[in-house]
Design a protein around this nucleic acid. Sequence first.
DNA 1: GGTACCTGGAA
DNA 2: ATTCCAGGTAC
Length: 227
Amino acid sequence: MDINEFITRFNKIKKLGFIKSLRKGPTGVGKTLETYLGIKENNINLPDLEGAELKAHRYNSDNMITLFTFNRGAWIMDPLEAVKRYGTKDINGRLGLYFTMSFTQNSAGLYLYLENDAVSVRHIDGNVLVRWKFSDLQEQFNNKIPALVLVYARSEFRGDDEYFEFYKALLLKGTTKDILKESIKNGVILIDLRLHDKGTMARNHGTGFRVHEKDLPLIFSMSEVIA
DNA sequence: GGTACCTGGAA
DNA sequence: ATTCCAGGTAC
């Protein structure tokens, strides 16, 4: 599906008004939009549209947008061991590493460390948990996000069921080479650890490379409302 | 059965 | 801003 086809289909979805979420939980908005567009769910690290990646976002949500995830070959420490050593307990007692990392250490003693060609997550005890080469990150970004179509949805609950009204789509494009390294250095692209103890293994949702909506213009030079 | 991606959140 | 979190599939 190219951008023009997307616009055609999206305008029809807009006219539907509020539609019931096809999945409970945070991911319902993306699942519902994709299904109505006729896009099959997948886990391929390529854009959903021809030449652009699709993102759905609830209106008034201040959460970061995940540009891509990347873990392949990056973990130096065994992830489950890292969770057990440095994780924090959630409300049910489950250990997890759910941190948006920064260059100053967090409450668990973990911090980002910058090298010439890589960025890593380290602990103050000296251990390196995970390390990504900028060249790998840049490649993943280029493959996944040649451009971005950001779709906004109003959300409301009717009893336990969430409904979405998709009402606007924004096209962002015009990113630049080496954007990954610069953006990680200056904190525009944030590294989000998202894994927990699943008993015999670590359940890893994938380290997210994420950006606040307000910072998107720092990554993409052009934006236009397309629907 | 574990890994690595996908899709996204809350207080 | 920080601490913390969600439901999915291919292989």
